[in-house]
């Protein structure tokens, strides 16, 4: 079947198998390889992207379901002049990433979290990120980065 969607502002159309997952459509048809696959049970959140402004695990969405939709991945987050999004800036300032594999999904989950709850507590952040796994950071600095991005405070 033919799937047409907008990924980071650009239209992408491809003929794919009906069963094609959105994450594979993004990686293979759209060439957006930042979004990673970290599990096969919708547990890890490495594949989190925004679909029409809401975060989804793109391994659990068929490309067909996203037909006509608007996708944002981490590649589409920075400003056109290259300036990083405040969440990206906070992740760097607070050392909220190490190997980087969970990072694209984690950042998109945080963008979605802050859109829904602009002023979260530490508990809110920890609960909201339960579906995004990171094996490197122990989450400590991810939580700090989210709180820093939320408060808009200058990076330390």
């Amino acid at each position: 079947m033919k799937v047409t969607l907008t990924a980071n502002g650009s239209e992408v159309a491809a003929e794919v198998e009906d069963r094609t997952l959105l994450v594979h459509f993004l990686r293979d048809a759209a060439g957006l390889t930042a979004t990673n696959v970290g599990c096969d049970t919708s547990s890890c959140g490495a594949c989190t992207v925004l679909l029409d402004g809401r975060s989804v695990k793109s391994c659990t969405v068929l490309a067909a379901q996203a037909d006509g939709g608007e996708i944002t991945t981490v590649e589409g987050l920075a400003a056109p002049d290259g300036e990083m999004h405040p969440v990206q800036t906070a992740f760097r300032a607070e050392h909220a990433l190490q190997c980087g594999f969970c990072t694209p999904g984690m950042v998109m989950a945080v963008v979605s979290l802050l859109a829904e709850n602009p002023d979260p507590t530490e508990d809110d952040v920890r609960t909201a990120l339960e579906g995004n796994l990171c094996r490197c950071t122990g989450y400590h600095n991810i939580v700090r980065a989210v709180l820093a991005a939320a408060s808009g405070r200058r990076p330390s």
Binding site: T33, E75, A93, L97
Partner: peptide
């Protein structure tokens, strides 16, 4: 001293290039 990482801008804006990402 506390120096932020040189690796991060790439990992945060383009994603890393892991084996499955190699083009």
């Amino acid at each position: 001293t506390r120096v932020v990482r040189t690796e991060d801008p790439r990992l945060l804006t383009a994603g890393g290039t892991y084996v499955d990402d190699l083009r």
